[in-house]
Amino acid sequence: MWKTILRRVLIIIPEVFVLSILVFLLAKAMPGDPFTGSINPHTSLAHIHHLMKINGLYDPWYQQYWNWLVHLFHGDLGMSYEYQEPVTRIVGERAINTLWLAVFATVLTYAIGLPVGLYAGRHQNSRGDHAIRMYTYVTYAIPFFVILVMGLWIFGYLLGWFPTTGSIGTNVGSGFPAVISRLQHIILPGILQALFGLVGIVQYLRSEVIDATHSDYVRTARSKGVPVKDVFKHHVFRNSLLPITATAGYSITGLLGGSIYTETVFSYPGMGLLFVSAINYRDYTVITALVLMYGVLSMLGTLLSDIIMAAVDPRIRIE
């Protein structure tokens, strides 16, 4: 088991290295330079060249990459052109907001999705199962942003139950009222995101449960005289939950990466919204930082999933 984990962790080091080169080269390939925005009409071309030169932008790419890497290790991702602030500070603020929303939505997704999926699988073709399948098909057929806008319109605008924009109310102080205000702002987007996100879990889990119910080892368990309740608890549910548990590792990407749709529709100042606006304003340093971060997060998510998988499934361990 430890060997498997160690090996998997060692593989990730060259992966991150290759990813950083790719991200850096792609950023370099984008048109424009960092100074075009910070000059005035009287700046001479020679001065720009001078600035480029003293900032090392005429150096060969590997030297520039090395400098970038050294800065990266010092926690310096450069300045945002749009905000004129260090990228790390901007990302830090957004990351907290995203974390609030994503944790709420993810917990809700699994808290509803798992029991509903298990129920639908166990009571295949019952009325409840039909209703659940109908819900998943309809939800899956509607584009996510339409669901978001509808939810926003009905519960935020018509009924006025929830705030429609932002992550915290204006004029709330700090401490407890601030926490309440934050919660109010994440409830609606969080619920909508969960209601959409659980569709995949429910459908996957349902078919896993049905598969397991008809498998030979479940028949064996029944012939051993295991009561039906325990057959489901020990054999069916456990074996069908494992793949879902394993994919849970990927949700770490969403935890810090944020949902582009939800945050855009609700103007929720998180990572997803930041990413969209950075692309709109060609805010290269921010884009580079975010792409690198998403990449590393996906790798960590996959790593986590692989470790969970190895822990729960004896067949894929390396001895």
């Binding site: 012939s223 456990r238 074996n239």
Partner: peptide
Amino acid sequence: QMIFQDSLSSLNPR
């Protein structure tokens, strides 16, 4: 009790 034909699939792999 019962013994089955397929010895692999009739035992819970995990």
